[in-house]
Design a protein around this nucleic acid. Sequence first.
DNA 1: TTGAAAGCGTTACCAT
DNA 2: ATGGTAACGCTTTCAA
Lengths: 333, 333
Amino acid sequence: MKRGRPTIEQVAALAGVSRGTASRVVNDEPYVSAAARAAVLKAVRELGYVPNQAARSLVTRTHETVALVVSGEADDPRLSEDPFFAEVIVGINAVLAETDLELMLMLGANERARTRLLRRLRSGQLDGVMLLALPGADPLCRLAEESGAPTVYGGRTMDGEPRYFVDADNRGGARKAVEHLLVQGRQRIVTITGPVDNEVTHARLSGCLDALGGGADPVVMHADFLESGGYQAMQSLLHAHPDLDAVFAQSDNMAAGALRALREAGRRVPDDVAVVGFDDLPWARHTAPPLTTVNQPIRAMGSEMARMLVALLGGGEPTSLILPTRLVLRESA
Amino acid sequence: MKRGRPTIEQVAALAGVSRGTASRVVNDEPYVSAAARAAVLKAVRELGYVPNQAARSLVTRTHETVALVVSGEADDPRLSEDPFFAEVIVGINAVLAETDLELMLMLGANERARTRLLRRLRSGQLDGVMLLALPGADPLCRLAEESGAPTVYGGRTMDGEPRYFVDADNRGGARKAVEHLLVQGRQRIVTITGPVDNEVTHARLSGCLDALGGGADPVVMHADFLESGGYQAMQSLLHAHPDLDAVFAQSDNMAAGALRALREAGRRVPDDVAVVGFDDLPWARHTAPPLTTVNQPIRAMGSEMARMLVALLGGGEPTSLILPTRLVLRESA
DNA sequence: TTGAAAGCGTTACCAT
DNA sequence: ATGGTAACGCTTTCAA
């Protein structure tokens, strides 16, 4: 049974006023007498009236809905292995909770999902879009902007800086990590990075080079941000540079892999080899030894993205943000 | 500038047919001549026409949208510390990607968010709802069902079994964990649980008691599923029962805390005390020693919830599911 | 197989 | 301060 919900017309009838008046009351508009307002409110309560959002959207052209689109593979480890994704959402939600905006979630998993996503974007049922740019360049970015809805980015993409974005200070964080290793007197520092075409890899590598200052030429091994990648990279590095005494891994997952490879190779951490990670995932304190790593304010990234979008929706002109990262000293370096 | 998007009327005009015909073509309906169909399709392409979803919803009363509502605190650790939440979403998304349904995300953070959530539920813009019941009983459950939209649950709630749900076999998993400890000849097994009013706590405790078989009376310490809670509980337990030789923690986080307390107390794991966790979080393999724990198929829970909802939407009568859990043997027990 | 017209429930405008 | 009326863009009868 498709129960018919009460319409504003019925509310108006019960309250003994016109639709126009009832509508004004429901939307908290001025120019309604106290008496009429009370009557309408009473009728609303009695009937259990809830406005039909579709009808409202049709005429107001607003949808009270924004989307978070994640333009990565469905299997991207940052989606499931890391709490990254969830943290961003929690941050977003905290801000949206103070508004009347609902959150739509779009993971660009397969081709069909992407098509649908695009269609939804263009069908104009979204007031704004937050784009979490996981991989390098993604055509989705362009398309999101073409949809005409205000768009803010989480992270920057390879091809140029978006108009509105929130990013973590990846470069500065990496610099601090490597500087810490240098201050300790480490002589032979190697770096394990993410995929080459990745903006995050790029930024963290820049920071690393900033610290190294171009003295000796740096040893860089590209991997994939994953534990297994870090493990393999570490093995190769140990083989190629047996004299290494410090490793900066661009992610905690890779640092965990490096730790494992080091343990198997009989190197002591941090005595023989110092290890620094990046991300400060919740489990970083549980590794053996506890991991020194760079913390990035993931939740804040989410809330700042949302705040920025809300500002945009309100006609404001927010400025892009680079959030600070900080080195968390534990025992691995 | 509020660009006006093309309407079906314009498409019809350009194609030289009526609105009715154009509409039928767009919705892949029969009774349209091949010629007319081609003309309309061409016009659609030329104009870049995308149907207005709000207008469509208004008349069809369907919204191609389902919601995942998480009825917990915004700070629930399972939202951010654990990948639980993200995994469920990835699972849901994988199924939804094969349909035309969009996903709306609602975290019942504060009062305002809950009110909004309810309003959205009742405003009938949702075709279906998935309810992830993190904490014990939640009034939201009732309200979701009152909204009239098909509802499926992830996990069961304290007050009775919902009509449609997907759950992990918490009881069976806990039983397996404790049986494993017994088989090893552990004599003095203690349990650290989650909050008392929690259904998951309840189920896992039942499984534990199943294994113990009511021989000696079991030592149970209630905590909160968190690392810090596990740490404190372990300390208390060591104090009260210095002779304990095994602990079953109802979450990996608590197991990590127990590990820490044990280390500080100078007990060796697993030699002096065996430790088993629950969840098999990604970092469980990184603890020292690597954690033996119970794996639950979180992603599958998500996809099964989605599958169930899709079935319901299609008029089907799916049956509720209890997904298997399995013991993952590592080195802590 | 097609076209015309009647809503869907709301807001917005214009008189009053 | 209020009521009537015209959109909003679509789907869906009903006739032709």
